[in-house]
Design a protein around this nucleic acid. Sequence first.
DNA 1: TGCTAATCGGATGGGTCATCCGGATGACCC
DNA 2: GGGTCATCCGGATGACCCATCCGATTAGCA
Lengths: 193, 193
Amino acid sequence: MTPTPLRKDAARNWDQIVAVGRALVDQGTPLQLNDVARRAGIGVGTVYRHFASPEALLETVATPCLEALAAHGEQALADPDPWRALEGFLTRTVEAQVGDASLAPVTAAAEDVLPRTTELKSLLWSSGTTLLDRARAAGTVRPDLAAGDLVPLMCGIAYAVQVHGGAPAERIDTARRYLATLLGGLRVTPPGA
Amino acid sequence: MTPTPLRKDAARNWDQIVAVGRALVDQGTPLQLNDVARRAGIGVGTVYRHFASPEALLETVATPCLEALAAHGEQALADPDPWRALEGFLTRTVEAQVGDASLAPVTAAAEDVLPRTTELKSLLWSSGTTLLDRARAAGTVRPDLAAGDLVPLMCGIAYAVQVHGGAPAERIDTARRYLATLLGGLRVTPPGA
DNA sequence: TGCTAATCGGATGGGTCATCCGGATGACCC
DNA sequence: GGGTCATCCGGATGACCCATCCGATTAGCA
């Protein structure tokens, strides 16, 4: 799977670049490869060789979180309650998007630059689609909601939280409130039914 | 109100610039003043004198639509049915955001560059707040939704529609579906109650 | 028609971005 | 342990985009 195991110094620099990228993302600074190189104490050429574009670095930074989400998505399929499974899936996904700034742009992007990202997103959407289909078949969600609506709605919630602003702790609370509102609109039959 | 009535050629150029800006916005091209000048057949300096930044031009382009929304907002206050008034207000606002690409960035921006924009947004938010408060007092909306949530949620819907993509006609349909879902989550008592 | 003040509009300087190539270094084999 | 080679490092470099400034021009007015 790894065509060339990467030389020792190259691997060290790779880690360094990703670490700086993660730090920049966390503090909300837009990724500029020239800037990343300066902060990492590494030549500009090295950074551009490892990551052809800021998007490539961003996707790399987001990969671990995407992997966790994809894993949780597959695991949610085991839940016998269709509505609870969908609810948990959406909750976890939205909270991850709000908590990790690298996720929102990657999930909203129509095109990916890393194959791994495409693969993970495909897995994640596949889980979401199945969960939504199951819930619809059980009659617990609006029938006019298609699988293609799942991603936009989650991105919309994340964006709404961003527009609302506030401290990180407050933002998670906001996200939960917005998601609860949306879920209330998604659900057809009351929870007690 | 108009400190200096603007010279004839200056007014002509102003109109020309706004027209080009409107055209660019409609076709989804990001506003670059240098580019606007070239397309309008006008010197770069002239464009920068009329509009200090791309945001200023964007806000100018969006102003007519904002004025219409603000007018409708005040008019909605006359509706005796609190829920129907709020519903109509949100519907009109979201549809305008989806139909006019200049609106979304302006409404989502925390800071404005034109005083007129700030004034119109303030009017609009004021109407929205009143409508929401009235609906909450009537017990027809979730009690945990604050006035500050109105703008983020509408921007979130508009963003979700954008992520969903598709042709303009399809986008309005998508917007209506998303808004219906959100409204279903907002409402506490069924419409017939 | 001539004067004045405002406007026009391109040439110009600063800044950012991505690339390229000579020097250096790690990996492998003898 | 030493030599050879492929790979990597990293800053200097060129191209591009943006915003400003000032000489030339034109509209408004007596």
